[in-house]
Design a protein around this nucleic acid. Structure first.
Lengths: 198, 198
DNA sequence: CAATAATAAGTAAATATTTATTTACTTACA
DNA sequence: TGTAAGTAAATAAATATTTACTTATTATTG
């Protein structure tokens, strides 16, 4: 049996992400992807059932998998609140800085019903990844360090500014000067922490 | 000369927004829109140059126009910081609660390059709308009420949690109980304000 | 003041492309 | 040498946009 060419599998994923990030999800076509990856359209269908499967798989692996794993690096639920939040923010910043394409795909996940479905399907298992963050928040709410909001509300307060600042970071990458540095990011992180502490 | 049928113009806009919100931007086709609005595809082209023009116009009017106007209702740049922020948040909450479709389109603006372009094109004039918010932030930074971050950073800290909470609001509308009420929203607003105050 | 001409609004159906996916074949390796 | 991996080209459906025609109104004319 002829073995799979792993380079081609990799090319499909990398180039799909690239097209999505640079031209938008709406401009990713199977034929364009095949041409850019120097393969036949058929080859994509050997590895994925169809376009939806490709996109959902990409989303789950790059956004719900790799990102969440990167964010939780060296993080423990029983960390000091300020330390923990800073760790999460810096991990996220580092990951996205090097994975601009994954960031673009994540943004699509917030609007596209297709990817949204994938998110909800994965949400059950996601407790395993983000479990540490959930426990972290519960732990500090119980200890009285922070207010006892619903978990989804805590997440919004804690991470939405980071995502928005990340957007700004990429916007400013195409301008003369960058306003989002690790320093300003940590200052923003302090603002968020200060707001949440009781 | 036969006059324009304003109901048809209205139908195009309303139904386009509806399809985008319910099925996604990627599933809006000119033919589907025409059929749903009970008109000929040609009629859309009388009112808009092409699909891009339709989407960009929709985005500018519904997201960059109506929304920003609603947010700034009864807002003045020299308001007390906490009062001003609460006003902006409550205005935004009230608007989106009644304009779910506009919210969906706004979310697409963050990912789709097409709408992103529209945003940048409008950004120059946007100073006129959001000018009051910019002046508000400058005013309070100068007065020492808040830290002196870059305007885009202030905006991220101030509004991204609201947008995220709004997303949660719509998510929870399809579940048994709603976690985002005006009360919890104001509590979150207090968290943000507390974080930003020096 | 009625009849009507001028004209943009509107329609139904067609067109030329583009698209996801498949068919029929070839290739490389265990 | 059997077999899944891979290719080039085909296909059928969908899509944005156009063509060729019809309709409803207004402003003018007789």
């Amino acid at each position: 049996m002829r073995p799979k060419n792993l380079e081609k599998e990799e090319a499909i994923r990398t180039i799909a992400l690239q097209i999505i990030a640079e031209e938008g999800l709406e401009n990713l076509t199977m034929q364009k992807l095949a041409k850019a990856a120097n393969i036949s359209p058929r080859t994509i269908y050997i590895k994925y059932d169809n376009k939806e499967d490709l996109l959902v798989t990409l989303y789950i692996e790059e956004v719900l998998g790799a990102y969440e794993q990167a964010v939780l690096k060296d993080f423990r639920f029983d960390m000091n609140f300020a330390e923990g939040v800073k760790k999460l923010w810096l991990n996220g910043f580092a990951y996205f800085k090097n994975n601009r394409h994954a960031f673009a795909l994540m943004q699509y996940g917030k609007s596209s019903p297709l990817l949204n479905k994938a998110y909800q399907a994965k949400n059950i298992k996601q407790g395993d990844y983000f479990g540490a963050v959930i426990r972290f928040l519960e732990y500090h709410a119980a200890a009285g360090t922070i207010r006892n909001f619903h978990q989804d509300i805590q997440r919004a307060l804690l991470f939405s500014p980071l995502i928005d600042l990340m957007s700004e970071y990429f916007d400013y990458q195409e301008r003369p000067e960058q306003i989002i540095t690790e320093e300003t990011l940590l200052q923003c992180c302090d603002v968020v922490i200060k707001g949440m502490l009781k």
